[in-house]
Design a protein around this nucleic acid. Structure first.
Length: 281
DNA sequence: TGCCAGGCCTTCC
DNA sequence: GGAAGGCATGGC
């Protein structure tokens, strides 16, 4: 099977897949393997080109470009945020080319419900377990992979079944959300068409979704780059850089970030998050 | 052993 | 509207 070659600009595959926004990509040697939509993807980067292989070649270029936001002008965005201040400039220099993914809405909702008061390796483990048990199996290069299940595929899954996937106390939140989707109480397609504040409000109505999780979903699946999710790491880095390590509330941090970073708050947040976690800043 | 993790829910003011 | 406590689980 042929390898699809795509020219990229202002794109770093490693930073994009390892910055903590997604949970199912696996790094093997010089490539990453993961699932996008209905297919398994193996992807690697060499300079200004990415090379892609998949079990499904139909519309492959479009699927990849869409998921990685390759048509979006990140160069202009980075030029714009590099002049915000010296901290942002430094962080950006360390992780330039990191992009926000356009991940599946349902998968992102469930994954980030699982993320609450959790750590990334364990979130990955749980999301993979749910996929393995309830998602469609795909074979590629003589190995087995699993798509993330649809709400329909989860309709008979019980609270205890989720618990067995290692999600802990979040079991009932997932169960409740899946049930409401399958009962047509909420419409995932309509939600994605909403303006940001309406969509945020709708997300907050779901069990297990608070302000931080809602903002992550908005950022990592819905391309609303003005939101500013504050987790323990972002709280830490913001206090360190802008509040002299004083004890300030999340509300104050959010106001400061919104005023200063404005429409690029989400992009800057991700660079700061990655930089503080990797001890780069 | 105790603390921490991409926090949220419930309860109580 | 805000503060405090509880919550599953695995890694350190």
């Amino acid at each position: 099977m042929d390898e699809l070659k795509i020219k990229v600009d202002c794109f770093n595959l490693k930073y994009t897949l390892e910055c903590g926004q997604c949970f199912r990509w696996k790094n093997i040697d010089d490539y990453y393997v993961g699932v996008i939509k209905d297919r398994v993807i193996k992807i690697r980067q060499d300079g200004d080109y990415i090379y892609v292989r998949s079990n499904e070649e139909k519309d492959l270029e479009k699927v990849v470009k869409d998921y990685f936001e390759l048509e979006k002008d990140y160069k202009s965005i980075e030029e714009r945020i590099s002049v915000v201040d010296e901290y942002v400039k430094k962080a950006l220099k360390n992780t330039s080319g990191m992009r926000h993914l356009k991940q599946d809405f349902f998968e992102t909702i469930i994954s980030y419900i699982i993320s609450a008061n959790n750590n990334i390796p364990r979130i990955s483990k749980s999301v993979n377990e749910i996929s393995r048990k309830y998602g469609k199996k795909i074979e590629f290069d003589e190995e087995e992979y699993y798509l993330f299940p649809t709400p329909e595929q989860l309709k008979d899954v019980t609270v205890d079944d989720y618990r067995a996937c290692g999600v802990g106390f979040r079991d009932k939140y997932i169960f409740n959300t899946v049930k409401r989707i399958n009962n047509k109480e909420i419409d995932l397609l309509k939600m994605q068409e909403m303006d940001t504040q309406s969509l945020r409000k709708e997300l907050l109505s779901l069990m297990g979704i608070g302000p931080k999780v809602a903002d992550c979903i908005l950022l990592f699946s819905c391309q609303r780059q003005e939101v500013f999710p504050i987790d323990v790491w972002v709280e830490r880095v913001m206090k360190k850089l802008y509040f002299n390590d004083k004890d300030v509330s999340k509300k104050e941090i959010l106001k400061y970030a919104s005023d200063k970073f404005r429409d690029d708050a989400g992009i800057i947040q991700q660079h700061l998050f990655y930089n503080i976690r990797e001890n780069l800043i």
